[in-house]
Design a protein around this nucleic acid. Structure first.
Lengths: 224, 224
DNA sequence: TTATATATGATAGTAATACTATTATTAATA
DNA sequence: TATTAATAATAGTATTACTATCATATATAA
């Protein structure tokens, strides 16, 4: 099932809005494919241009650098996650159940919708796991942050932090726990797949289920 | 106080052992300075060569790429942490106290020794926080991992996992908790400094103490 | 319909990066 | 003193990360 969805993303992220043209959308969706295939380090605008049968110049008219493009993609993902979370959680009242479902959503454990806006969610999720920290683990983080390009991430964290506070209003670290759950979801899934000695998933299968169980234990014991 | 220390590091990390010559040691210690100053993305062998008044060719005789050099530096740090932990923990019997001290060591909350092997520990720690994940968050992680260059990290995690099991032999995720504590120590310190909305350190000072308190809460509630 | 603006394509060019290679010079060791 | 090995100096290459120019195609407005 394919779905159409649009988010108004920060204007600092692009020079021309990629949602405003076919080639713009094709830049983003093919960037997701290509980063997924070869990793962010090997990813270049030249290779992307070849993939979409266009030129570097055209891509540069949309994005000033591959870092901006990566951040654009991540912003889209964070907006998407919060959007999905809000819809799926609104019918639930029990805060414990809410947090549990939130963890499932973070872990991308749904599988109903596979493509949104012609973006492959599976590949997007894989990029988030492997590359998302590269958007902020840079020397220029403070200047980049001033452009508000991390607000969707902060907003998502804030949303999770509210669920946490519903469950335990006295918990002292709701935002840190929220960001930890997000980051740990990515780190542990990567470890489970590539550096299993850093996890207890000795079976080395069902990485997603393993990480979900671990996060569940971590979150609920912290909030007890 | 300056100290001399040597670790036998994985031979896949270098072409010529940098510990075997003055220029080799100078490559490593100046790489730490330079990566600290300009970040790993901006760091090049050419700039490093200028800093040590030598040439790119000389550096390439020691390290085949800047990734290998980064991993070498991280390996040294992980070995150092485990070494320090083993010495400082041996006199302690209470597992809770052990884990607490381990968290302090992870957080680099000591400050007695400032330079080891002419490496600035403060700068090294800052590099670990900002750049360490770049050593394994790459497409080639599985091939790199086969060369055993992450064993010091695994060994450190294993050491922490043993403390965790001493405290609670029934805990199901001792290794995942160990790697989570390590990674979260880095992530939360970075967030506290650069993306404070992702933490609850509203005072925005004493990042180290804040993160220590949070990790303490997280670890001990998980193991209760 | 024509005029105009705009997006894209095609091409070129530049400085920097990430290397590899060659040769001369220096220092260490046998 | 002869030999070996490390380093310096230099050059060169393919790729990267852009910037710039101009022609052409396309959409829109008068």
């Amino acid at each position: 099932m394919d779905v159409l969805l649009k988010f108004k993303l920060n204007e600092h992220l692009y020079l021309r809005d990629p949602e405003s043209s076919e080639i713009g959308k094709s830049i983003v969706s093919n960037a997701i494919e290509l980063i997924y295939e070869i990793g962010f380090e090997q990813f270049t605008f030249k290779k992307l241009a070849q993939k979409i049968d266009s030129t570097e110049a055209t891509i540069y008219r949309y994005f000033s650098s591959k870092y901006k493009l990566l951040t654009y993609i991540l912003n889209w993902y964070w907006c998407y996650l919060e959007f999905v979370a809000k819809i799926r959680l609104q019918q639930i009242n029990d805060p414990a159940e809410k947090l549990q479902l939130m963890l499932r959503i973070i872990m991308h454990d749904e599988g109903v919708v596979s493509r949104v806006q012609d973006y492959s969610l599976e590949k997007l999720h894989s990029i988030v796991i492997g590359e998302s920290s590269k958007a902020y683990l840079v020397k220029e983080v403070d200047e980049i942050n001033q452009e508000k390009v991390f607000s969707p991430l902060k907003s998502l964290c804030n949303f999770i932090h509210e669920i946490i506070l519903e469950l335990n209003p006295n918990f002292k670290y709701p935002k840190s726990l929220a960001s930890t759950l997000l980051e740990t979801a990515h780190a542990q899934q990567f470890f489970s797949e590539h550096l299993p000695a850093l996890t207890d998933n000795s079976a080395r299968v069902e990485h997603r289920q393993y990480v979900f169980n671990y996060l569940h234990q971590l979150a609920f014991s912290a909030l007890k």
